[in-house]
Design a protein around this nucleic acid. Structure first.
Length: 514
DNA sequence: GTTCTAGAAC
DNA sequence: GTTCTAGAAC
């Protein structure tokens, strides 16, 4: 083993170069080695753990898959865990394990969390999906390192959990949450009783956590500073979800005792189990709906400088057809604006929200929306004139605010003829078109041809009782047309050429400072 | 809406 | 061999 200084978990049976043998004990905790057939009974008794219902096992997040150094990840994780445990100093239910098969990862955590610190957190060398079967350490809650796509097999840990969690776990995830998910959020899922991971390992919950990505080969890499913040947010969201589950398990235990063994055996008792699983999800949604403070930890974290104004709750559930879930992706902003960070949610009141476009097509790109559901321009009638006026006012204020910051920015406000998202949304977009979301010809053409309808014109049409119906075939034609610079009429042949061209304009106009 | 990717274009 | 697009998949 290449561990340098001999760490406390060193196994004398392994020489300097050998890998742990798959046939013998492989799960090694920072303060002791656990035999695969321990003589000391079952579950976690060997770790003075009073309740196996509340143990959490998680992998180091974002490394190496997200190209974030294990040292950074370990440091942030230990900071967040330290605050979490300090907020619950005497809660014996809490038990956390970071689990990795890589010795270097284990070592990084041990450097930040030596075994003499709070014993409720331990470092484990092993496989996260084999905690019970290999060592009889029951961890009823596992963390899956997911990507924003919230789909199976996206990361190495996800592959392990996917294999053993089974299709039912992903079906349940899709049922509960909109896809895609958001970086920094946690998505807890009660594990269906049919899942092999539940039957074999007694895992009751999976928490999908989406850490940031710095890997340039993967979509949307972020710079280190942002990655640090998002990673802290992800670990915090993970613990927040964990804390909620601990509370729920305690409530469940009060009434019913630990029925896990029975549930695993009674796979055929489907009705009762299904009721319990749905109950968990319903309760969580109920808590979100009521805006209840979730815990002391939530309050502490929400007031901390690094996470100020950043809610770690996942966006609320808005169910629609799975295949087209994205068309309702704007609804969570309208239904629960308070759950978004100040980066995402610019402003809101009872009737209106202003959000930053998630994939900005220009230096400044916002969406202004009514909070009540309105299915696009086509559903507007003359009765909605005040709504449209309010949207335009709101957009105007946003423009004023932006121009105060950079007077060189020019804006247009308007609507796409054929929007992709269902909820009525007005674009407020600066006219530089230098934005990380501008990738395809259709993106550019959707804002620079007749496909884009100025808000003032739309309002005039609505006031005059004229139709706001747009023929899809006619307007799609504008998207397919040739690229032509909206400022100088030049016609770059490709998108990369156009982007380089627009970048020059933007620099001349001093829209881009650096 | 976005990402992924085969194959066209260079 | 690399860049880029466009359609499929999500």
């Amino acid at each position: 083993m290449s561990l340098g200084k001999r760490p406390p978990y060193h196994d004398d049976n392994m020489d300097e170069h050998s890998q742990p043998s798959p046939k013998k004990a492989e799960i090694i905790i920072s303060d002791e080695t656990v035999d695969s057939n321990p003589p000391r009974g079952c579950d976690n008794s060997s770790h003075s753990e009073p309740s196996s219902a509340c143990a959490l096992a998680f992998p180091p997040l974002a490394t190496p898959h997200g190209h974030i150094s294990i040292d950074i990840s370990a440091k942030i994780a230990c900071d967040v865990i330290s605050e979490f445990l300090a907020a619950h100093p005497k809660d014996p239910r809490l038990r956390l394990y970071v689990v990795d098969q890589d010795e270097r990862a284990v070592e990084a955590f041990l450097e930040n969390w030596p075994p003499d610190r709070d014993a409720r957190f331990s470092v484990v060398l092993g496989k996260i999906t084999e905690m019970r079967s290999r060592s009889r350490m029951t961890c009823s809650i596992l963390v899956n390192e997911a990507t924003w796509r919230l789909k199976p097999g996206a990361t190495p840990v996800s592959v392990q959990i996917q294999t053993d969690g089974g299709k039912a776990m992903w079906d349940e995830t899709r049922r509960l949450y909109p896809n895609p998910g958001a970086v920094g959020n946690a998505y807890p899922v009660p594990l269906p009783v049919t899942s092999p991971l539940r039957q074999r390992e007694r895992v009751r919950h999976i928490i999908h956590v989406i850490p940031p990505n710095m890997n340039p080969a993967r979509p949307d890499p972020v710079p280190l500073q942002k990655a640090r913040l998002l990673l802290r947010k992800a670990y915090t969201a993970m613990l927040e979800a964990y804390w909620r589950i601990v509370g729920e398990e305690a409530d469940r235990g009060k009434g019913e005792g630990d029925r896990d063994g029975q549930e695993v055996k009674d796979v055929d008792g489907k009705d009762e189990n299904r009721k319990m699983v749905q109950g968990d999800a319903t309760k969580e949604n109920e808590q979100r709906k009521n805006g209840e403070p979730k815990s002391l930890f939530d309050i502490l974290m929400s007031s901390s400088a690094a996470c100020a104004a950043e809610s770690t709750s996942p966006p609320p559930v808005h169910r629609s057809e799975d295949r087209h879930a994205w068309i309702d992706m704007l609804m969570p902003y309208c239904e629960h604006p308070e759950q978004f960070t100040s980066d995402q949610m610019v402003w809101y009141d009872e009737a209106m929200v202003v959000v930053r476009d998630k994939f900005p097509k220009a230096q400044a790109h916002f969406l202004v929306m009514p909070r009540r559901p309105i299915d696009g321009l086509t559903s507007l009638t003359q009765k909605d004139v005040p709504t449209l006026e309010a949207l335009i006012n709101c957009g105007g204020s946003t423009v004023d605010k932006m121009k105060a910051e950079n007077p060189h920015l020019e804006f247009r406000m308007g609507f796409h003829a054929i929007p992709s998202m269902r909820q009525l949304h007005m674009h407020v977009i600066s006219q530089d078109f230098v934005g990380i979301g501008l990738k395809r010809k259709e993106h550019y053409n959707s804002f620079t041809t007749r496909f884009f309808n100025d808000a003032s014109e739309v309002l005039a049409r609505l006031r005059a009782g004229k139709s706001l119906q747009y023929d899809k075939r006619e307007y799609d034609h504008f998207l397919k047309g040739p690229l032509r610079c909206h400022l100088c009429n030049e016609a770059p042949a490709t998108m990369p050429a156009l982007k380089a061209h627009l970048d020059k304009h933007a620099r001349k106009m001093r829209v881009i400072i650096c």
